[in-house]
Amino acid sequence: MTAPLKDITPAERARSTSFYEASARTRLELLLDAGSFVEFIGPEQREVSPHLKIFDLPEQFDDGIVVGHGRLDGAQVFVAAQEGRFMGGAFGEVHGAKLTGLLRAARQIGSIPVLILFDTGGVRLQEANAGELAIAEIMRAVMEARSSGVKVIGLIGGRSGCYGGGGLIAGCCSALAVSEPGRIAVSGPEVIETNRGVEEFDSRDRALVWRTMGGKHRRLLGAADVFAADNVQDFREAALELLGLVGPLGLERLKAEQERLADRLRRYGACEDAVDIWTAEGIVHAETVPELPADQFIALADRIGRTSRDAR
């Protein structure tokens, strides 16, 4: 017998729900304090993409992103969650503008943080120019919000990962939490293979994809500061942890980031594979990192992994 659903606490439900498998709406419902989420321009407003009909493609009422506000441990937060199953979570005109508007409000207020639940392949091809520009506007809006003291936290663990311009927006955030399936990159595996050949990157080699772009590598490199197990409760706790750590953006941080990235190139610029980088970081039996369970990996990363704290 399984217990009736109503007897399960929200935290237990969040703990037993895979972030990777959940929809954008379920992620938000379980990430935030129970019942606190309120959506801006919800699906009933039917603000669909004006461009998909040109290609005779189906629309989604929220254009693949859910934005609104809610509470996290009682404190107000703005949230945006991409739906990675609708057109790969890609940025189109309406989709992007919803996030831009949210960030602009956060900038004006100055004290309410923004959580972005990335799940995206990048620019939506059918509205490529509008999507690319939306990403540029979001990057600018993230920087302006951070400069006004807003904490912008990215959570990455969805099926579409965080690719293309999504990876650049993630790079603009104050801090990131990532799970193992939460890949972060600019060019996707198929894009590299198509342009440079299978010798450069074999997109069907899933182990190669995970260790080059996956959450464990990003955490060890210091691209993400917190590693979350693949459940919504872990991401909730990661978001709370990061909100407590992040400081204001200023010139010193950008100089520190320049040094952090230069140091990375000096140390690992000649490495051929992620395993070489992990070995150079001092991990014994680095080849076993992909198999480590989340708790053991977190212990390892906390001991050896780098951090981007105060340097992004």
């Binding site: 929809s23 709406r25 919800g42 699906p43 009933e44 189906p58 629309e59 989604q60 009422f61 929220d62 739906e83 199953r85 609708f86």
Partner: peptide, 18 residues
Amino acid sequence: QSAIVGVVASGNLEVLVE
């Protein structure tokens, strides 16, 4: 007053009910 389920993807659909 309203609810939404599902997602628009291959082999899937969304239903908005009001």
